[in-house]
Design a protein around this nucleic acid. Structure first.
Lengths: 203, 203, 203, 203
DNA sequence: CATGAATGAGAATTCATTCAT
DNA sequence: CATGAATGAATTCTCATTCAT
């Protein structure tokens, strides 16, 4: 049994409890961006969410479970984007679109950009971090397979993972940048991924 | 005046004190990898370093300053690697070499891999993080200029930064991976950067 | 924003919390007399009060705020005594009575005697000290006005302040003295103030 | 044996050691006014005095001994002023002069005003405080005897002590006040003491 | 002897977490 | 069930004091 059980305490029965969980996660996300990881406290989260700390602990067994909840949400949204089907053949267009929606995700969803680095700098969260990234890489590698990328499963997953890591590095940066710099960064990111994937898809 | 002044309290003139500072930074690096950012305490650092906590605070005004010290060291080592000159023309070879030595840095220098994500997840450290990355991007962009990459200064820095972020994402991953996976990941990283830079250098 | 905000963290609405605040202040007063200012620690206060240190910090932002709370209480009690109306004309009797009740206050209220000197020897508390004394002097000067003391407002306040300071110096001394010495000291204090005020009221 | 031996560690042999002690005491006085009692640290004193902490501990066994040293100096200077003989008969003039020189002492000698309250708010120093005040009261009571004040020794000492306490209360206040207010306060202090002593000397 | 450096012990303050109502 | 209130256990940071050179 791990020191920090990360599973939510009980599936919120729906209705008003769900709204409570929602507000806790949202407050967590906002605070993460505002004050960073190490100033994030459960008391602050509860206050910001407008709920009592004891309520927070009713739905999450501990602090890390809250972050885990947020991480799962982030992972699910990213998975959904990756899996969203598109017309085959137009991989360059799809890549461009995917980068756009990912940027949108990182920009419009507070906390996501910060959460990504939090997950890999905190020991209790590393596991979920790696699992999430592996899942995303797997999903992406399946798309690569559709596009005819060859090699072993592991090869394709490595390709996917490398592409993902590149995006995960640049997106938070683009988020913080002004419009001109953001455009430049996104353009270069797209170029890099295009050049890279072209070798695998077309080569 | 910021809440957390990050400057070291005084440059140790070079006798016993230097050794103390050295051991503090080393202990910090080790602990960062072992327990992660949020379990990192100044007491633990001091204990691990075999010095008294008060000594730690004699040389660093607070916890963040210790991490800053480590970050500066990391930045300087990376800058040195980036700037190391090489015979012109062989950019592919140089890239491969650079990735090798960077991997070596991330693998052999404890704390570096973790520190990278710590820096962007902690508000008091974001500034130094961005400054360090900007400096590295600038150094790298100068190398790109030598290789004939065209475009504005800002363009070249964006290119450099995107390449850097990709590497910074994959290297910690490669560090944690077993030999086979590490090889795959590094190969793909190299392919990606080669394909990308080829477009800028040769195109 | 000052280094040591002195305002209580929130007015306890009046249930259990009020009792906690009460006990903290009482413990502070007792310890102040017993161990003095520089041995006064928040941990000792909490322990003596039978509450957790964290509770102390829930109601007071820092150590100085606790002392400020006590100082305000002291000021209010002194103000109440000064303002307590009496039959006009009998100023000597009123003075004697006032000195008696002040002595009683200093003797029976632990901490008050010590607190007085603490307030002026600690930089973060000097402000509240001066403000309290000014308020008391103002209140006393209003009584002097009722008794026909002439001169400007500032003059009367100076008279009041000088009288107050004399009392504030002698009272802690009388408190510590045995019965005989106490009697002598109080008699002389009364004589001094009578002689002084006679000149202003009757002259 | 008391927890805090207050005697200086050895009489400074004269010459350069004396200068060191001198500088320590001066630094202590300055800091006392600037930062107050509770922010006064031996390290800060040493730094301000331009000597090494270890040197401070060579001449003073502990922190309280430094304050004691300052207190003794203060007491001696006050005693000298009180004892300074003058032509008999002119007690009002002498009182006025004495108040003037005392004010000068409190104004020009940093730390003295603050030290007075420090001494009575710190348990380890209370003894020396009371002893000093008793000595001053005794000296003053001898002057009162010269002027024909009657009553027992204890009576005269009570008179002297009450007068002293009044002065000790007002002087720090006058020190902090602007010129106009200072003048008013000193005038009233003089009036009070005159009226009081007139009753004992002339009545 | 004076200093750079160190340190044991503790002090202020915080935080994750729980309980009583 | 939600909340006001409490708390055990750290955590950051400081300080009086000492030692080695």
């Amino acid at each position: 049994m791990p020191a920090h059980p990360l599973e939510p305490r009980r599936t919120p029965p729906g209705g008003r409890a769900l709204k409570t969980v929602e507000r806790i996660l949202e407050a967590t996300a906002l605070l993460l961006d505002e004050v960073g990881f190490d100033a994030l406290t459960t008391n602050a989260i509860a206050e910001r969410a407008g709920v009592n700390v004891a309520s927070l602990y009713k739905y999450f067994p501990n602090k890390y479970a809250v972050l885990t909840g947020l991480a799962e949400r982030m992972r699910d949204e990213q998975l959904a984007l990756i899996r969203r089907p598109t017309e085959p053949g137009a991989w360059r267009e799809e890549l461009a679109t995917l980068l756009d929606v990912f940027l949108d995700l990182f920009v419009s969803r507070p906390g996501f950009a910060t959460l990504a680095s939090v997950l890999s700098s905190s020991a209790p969260l590393r596991e979920i971090d790696e699992a999430s990234l592996a899942a995303e890489a797997r999903a992406l590698s399946e798309r690569l397979a559709e596009y005819g990328v060859e090699g072993s499963r592991a090869d394709r997953e490595a390709i996917a993972r490398v592409a993902l890591e590149a995006a995960r590095g640049v997106l938070p940066l683009a988020r913080r940048a002004g419009p001109a710099r953001r455009k430049r960064l996104m353009r270069e990111l797209r170029r890099m991924l295009e050049a890279y994937l072209a070798g695998h898809i077309e080569g």
